[in-house]
Structures are given as C-alpha cells and as structure tokens.
C-alpha cells in the first residue's frame, strides 16, 4: 500500500534520514521505533509532504507522493496525527472535527462520520462546544485521532500518540489504535514506547540515527536481545 524506497532527507546540511526503505501493507499496523532524534517524525513529515525529500521515493498505491502538494495528500486517504496533538485551540471540539473533513464534500456522510466519532469517543461529544485548548492532554489526543478519522482515511500515520499521557490513558490510546485497525484502516505508528507499540503491531522497524537497523515481525522484535536492551529496558 505504502512503500518508502531509499529515502534521504536533509535539514539544511544535516542528513536526518540516510537511506530508509520500508513497506506498509494494507490492513497492517506497522511500528516504527527508535530513540529520540532517530528520524521517526522526519519520515512521517516527508510522507505527508511537510518536508521535502532529497532522494528516494514514497509510493502510495502507485502514486509518487513526493510529487503531490502537502495539502492534497489527505484527500488521497492518508491522515496524519501529528506529534504533540496539534489541535486547533481556538476552534471548538466540533469545529476541529469538521477541520478533519475539510477536503470532503459529502455533507450527509460527514454527519455520519461525526456520529461514529462521537460513538468511539464519547468524551468528545460531551465537550463538543468547548474550545480544544481547554481540553486535557488525553482529550486532545482523542480529538487529534478523531479529527484524523474524520477524513475517512485508508491509512493513518500516528506520531507518538502516547507521549505525555498517564498509564491509563496510554492503555486507552492503544485500545483505540487496535479498534482503528479492526475497522480496516492501516496504521503506521511511530512510538518511543516500543513495548506497547510492538505489542499491537504486526511488524516493526527499528530506526537508529537515520537508518533502519532491524526489521521483522513484532513478536520477533520483542524477543530480540538488542531491542530488549536498547528499547524495552529489560
């Protein structure tokens, strides 16, 4: 579904992504793990066009994403839940959700999606008239995920969805990711919480300073000695 081939990304003269290739198949949950600064966020930003690539290809269903302007990516079925939530604090919860459906024109179906999102996140319905800036961190994360789902994506890119959340909320966030997968949406998950990420993923890639150093099924990575030592704290 999504294939990254020999990707190289620079910030000025600094090479953040050296040579990264990986694949996401339809229906999978793929975990991209690695330490801070390994380049996980950079990869997601390149996929959705926020950053330009120096070399390489990002192919999504036969289309070269690097040639598509950033604001058109979402209408191809790719939603991005950015790091740090990035909800619009001056818009209400309801208006934030509408922003998720910005490129959709089907009014009745948008209404239907909204009902579904409220069913999945009852807290958002309770707070639909509230400004997003007044929500708690956990609620903002739910809103960011709900907003992404409002675009009816076929694949969701999630950047550190559990960051800064209490253990109970982390649990809730991963439950939601599982339910997103169950509804048939593919997930590319970037996480520092490697243990949780690999526990729900099908496959995983380990990123170290701009290179993929290890890949395999999630269970094999969970049992890999070097992964255990470096990322699982065992």
């Amino acid at each position: 579904m999504l294939e990254i081939k020999n990707l190289q990304v620079y910030y000025g003269l600094i090479q953040a992504i050296k040579d990264v290739s990986f694949k996401v198949n339809e229906g999978e949950v793929i975990a991209l793990i690695g330490a801070n600064g390994a380049g996980k966020t950079t990869i997601l930003h390149t996929i959705t066009g926020l950053l330009p690539a120096k070399n390489g290809e990002v192919v999504y269903e036969g289309k070269d994403l690097l040639k598509i302007p950033a604001h058109e990516i979402i209408s191809h079925g790719i939603a991005h839940v950015p790091e740090g939530r990035q909800v619009f604090s001056q818009l209400t919860v309801y208006e934030n959700l509408l922003m998720g459906a910005y490129t959709r024109k089907d009014k009745d179906e948008i209404e239907e999606s909204l009902v579904n999102i409220y069913k999945r996140f009852p807290r958002l319905e309770e707070r639909k008239g509230q400004y997003a800036g007044t929500l708690s961190g956990g609620e903002q994360q739910m809103l960011a995920m709900g907003r992404a789902l409002m675009s009816k994506p076929r694949i969701v890119l999630m950047d550190e969805p559990s960051m800064g959340l209490s253990p109970i909320l982390v649990e809730e966030v991963f439950d939601i990711i599982e339910s997103i997968r169950k509804s048939g949406t593919t997930v590319l998950l970037v996480e520092q919480n490697a243990k949780k990420a690999l526990s729900i993923a099908d496959r995983g890639y380990v990123l170290e300073t701009g290179n993929i150093v290890l890949e395999g099924s999630a269970s094999s990575l969970l049992n890999d000695e070097s992964v255990k030592k470096a990322y699982l704290g065992e």
Binding site: T48, I74, F88, L91, L98, Y102, T103, S151
Partner: peptide
Amino acid sequence: TKVGRGMIAVSENKEAAILMGVNV
C-alpha cells in the same frame, strides 16, 4: 464558513492546517 475556519486553522498552526488539506 469552511473558508473562515481554514483561516483560523492556518493562523494558529500552519502545518496542522496543511495536514487537514487547507491550501495555505
């Protein structure tokens, strides 16, 4: 209006607005 909400979104967070499909 949708255009208006797009304006608020761009003014607050350009990158997030782009991710929503707003043409900045």
